[in-house]
Amino acid sequence: MSMIVRRSPLRTAGKYAAIGFYLIFALFPIYWLIKIALTPDALIYTEGTRMLPSALTFDNFAAVLQSDFLGYFTNSLIVSLGAAAGTTLIAAAAGYCFSRFRFAGKRAIIALLLVTQMFPLLMIIAPIYKIVAGLGLLNSLVSLIVVYTAFNIPFATFLMQSFFDGIPEDLEEAAMMDGCTRFQALRKVVFPLTLPGLGATLGFVFTAAWSELLFALMLISRNDSMTFPVGLLTFVSKFSVDWGQMMAAGTLALIPSCLFFIFIQRYLVQGLTSGAVKG
């Protein structure tokens, strides 16, 4: 807004109060998590609700890193990266198709994707369990990757479509006139221009897969294939007294998704702004 605005001091004060409120609202829980994780065990009870601890320690993190958490972390990383890569690839193809082709059944397929966004995915937790068990894939990370990939495809497809819609079709046509096949045009011209979109989709799916809990609980029960959420939850119910270590583990779980998020949030807004994502 480049207009000249008369600012009353009251309005300005109100605005900064709102900014402050939202900042505290968003950051306080995260701050608290990190604070307890850094507080030495001895002080947790005595200084329970003090805003700033009087001493800091990394013991909790050290302890967590020596436990099974590294394994959970690796499992989660494998699952999330696998699902993110798979989804992005498949959704990019589908989003490209919606953006560029007119074909019989297109509306029906789009409607189908929208519908999958609406019904409770928990509805299929029992059938999925039985199918996966029937295939002998319980406790395997592959089953989680496949399930997460399928769950995220609809949204990721719409997201990718909105990015493709933002790339003029002329460019591909020019490339085809220049001698490319459609696939070459896709690879050499469209793909480099969609990198932000691919990044956003990748990050989105990664974050979603990183935090999924209920299907992982259902499908994984062996300690060595647990993902982070499942592992953390088992840890919490087993050792519900070691607050410092739990929160240190929580803090560690926060890192990858927050990193991803900070990187992608700008593109996410951009993708949503360009309007194709109505679901």
Binding site: A26, P29, I30, P229, A253, L254
Partner: peptide, 17 residues
């Protein structure tokens, strides 16, 4: 970036926190 951060916190972790 900061106020959107809660969205990125894994839900199980939000719940635990």
């Amino acid at each position: 970036a900061l106020v959107f951060l809660p969205w990125a916190v894994p839900t199980f972790l939000t719940a635990l926190t």
